[in-house]
Computed example of a mutant assay.
Amino acid sequence: MITSVTRRLALGLFAGATLMATAVSAQDFPNRVIKMVVPYPAGGPTDVIARIVAEEMGKSLGQNVIVENLAGASGAVGTRTVARAEPDGYTIVFGNNQTHGNNMFLLKEPGYDAIKDFAPLAGAGAFEHVFVVPNSLPVKSMQELVALAKKDPGKLNYGSTGVGSGSHLATELFMTRTGIKMTHVPFRGAAPLVTELMAGRIDVSNSTLPSVLAQFQAGEMRAIGIASPQRNPQAPDVPTLREQGITDADAESWAAFFAPVNTPKPILDKLSGTIITILNKPDVKERITKLGFTLNVRDPEAFKPYLAKEIQTWADVIKTANIKAE
């Protein structure tokens, strides 16, 4: 007969063995390749930043860190893959306000819970949004754009990188603040949007700065306003919306690293510490900042309240704009 004392002893031994195994696995981590999922196509600004960090992680951890692009369903395909992955630290994701925020309200079946299924590793910062127009559109300021849109509501169209993306919701916020109406044209990522904008088939886009920086610097399109409190050093000649009399319309698309929620804490701590150290390295900061990305590195405890506030902010925008789940 198994006595209560025997049972407690067995449970104690089991718990001790489990803790020891976790400690050993954390101490040995990593001993094989780590996969960093980017839930968007290769070549975009999110992908470029992920590859910079992955390369540096490989150097720091002594194991290759490969980037895998799993695009689809507004970033949900790659994100749900990580949510369902083994929580051992070998599969992480570089997510953003769409994958870990807006999808909860705009997709009927995202296949994951952005809060319950993930443990934040580090907040990286944000992509600022900039309004760009084709050279053929006769506007050179935000006020001229607003005036043109008000002449014939709905005639102008605006492109975004998908329903629920930062560029979509930031433009909805802008239209709410200015009282204008434009027609939404969603694209699958930044590359096709930029192509159509330069061709003049899209009238305007409130795009993330890295996705259009090279194009407007080369004169292939015109930047008329940046939706941030101050001008960006990578685009110092582009005035802010506030400078042009448009308030409460600033927007940013944040980005952060996540692991599956049940990943052992020692492994989470190791990944988090490594990523934060990398993002604070001067050479890495310079490379990423040149892309037009604004670094604002947060550890997990600092990022959690920021995440909660951002989710609520954009949930309110979605409700106000009456955007329906797909």
Score class of each variant (00 low, 15 high):
residue 107 L to K: 14
residue 210 P to Y: 07
residue 270 K to E: 08
residue 253 S to I: 01
residue 30 P to V: 03
residue 227 A to K: 03
residue 256 A to P: 07
residue 268 L to K: 05
residue 283 D to S: 14
residue 18 T to F: 01
residue 316 D to P: 00
residue 60 S to Y: 00
residue 118 F to K: 13
residue 50 A to V: 03
residue 194 V to Q: 02
residue 13 L to Q: 05
residue 301 E to A: 15
residue 170 A to P: 02
residue 113 D to H: 06
residue 172 E to F: 09
residue 290 K to Y: 08
residue 129 H to N: 08
residue 35 K to V: 13
residue 213 L to W: 10
residue 217 Q to T: 09
residue 119 A to E: 14
residue 235 A to S: 09
residue 295 L to M: 04
residue 34 I to T: 07
residue 204 V to W: 12
residue 174 F to M: 08
residue 303 F to W: 14
residue 260 P to F: 00
residue 93 V to C: 08
residue 189 G to R: 14
residue 50 A to Q: 11
residue 36 M to V: 05
residue 320 T to H: 12
residue 274 T to H: 05
residue 293 F to L: 09
residue 135 N to L: 08
residue 288 I to D: 10
residue 120 P to D: 06
residue 153 P to A: 07
residue 313 T to G: 06
residue 303 F to V: 02
residue 198 M to R: 03
residue 65 V to R: 13
residue 162 G to I: 06
residue 51 R to M: 00
residue 306 Y to W: 13
residue 28 D to M: 14
residue 121 L to Y: 09
residue 12 G to E: 05
residue 313 T to M: 12
residue 296 N to L: 13
residue 319 K to M: 09
residue 286 E to R: 15
residue 175 M to L: 07
residue 239 P to D: 06
residue 41 P to R: 00
residue 43 G to S: 05
residue 121 L to V: 03
residue 276 I to A: 07
residue 264 P to T: 04
residue 26 A to I: 01
residue 19 L to Q: 10
residue 88 D to R: 11
residue 64 N to T: 14
residue 43 G to D: 01
residue 243 E to L: 14
residue 234 Q to M: 15
residue 318 I to A: 06
residue 253 S to L: 07
residue 307 L to W: 15
residue 243 E to Y: 07
residue 315 A to W: 06
residue 24 V to T: 10
residue 103 N to K: 00
residue 22 T to S: 08
residue 188 R to I: 04
residue 255 A to H: 15
residue 279 L to S: 09
residue 158 Y to T: 05
residue 178 T to S: 09
residue 182 M to G: 00
residue 104 M to G: 06
residue 73 A to H: 12
residue 241 L to M: 10
residue 184 H to E: 09
residue 300 P to W: 12
residue 278 I to Y: 05
residue 152 D to M: 13
residue 37 V to K: 02
residue 299 D to N: 15
residue 205 S to I: 12
residue 127 F to M: 13
residue 73 A to F: 10
residue 104 M to N: 13
residue 317 V to I: 12
residue 211 S to D: 08
residue 196 E to G: 07
residue 177 R to Y: 03
residue 79 T to Y: 13
residue 147 A to H: 10
residue 141 S to C: 11
residue 9 L to G: 12
residue 275 I to W: 11
residue 182 M to I: 00
residue 282 P to Q: 01
residue 97 N to G: 15
residue 5 V to P: 00
residue 209 L to D: 09
residue 97 N to H: 11
residue 144 E to F: 00
residue 266 P to A: 01
residue 2 I to M: 14
residue 108 K to G: 04
residue 87 P to L: 11
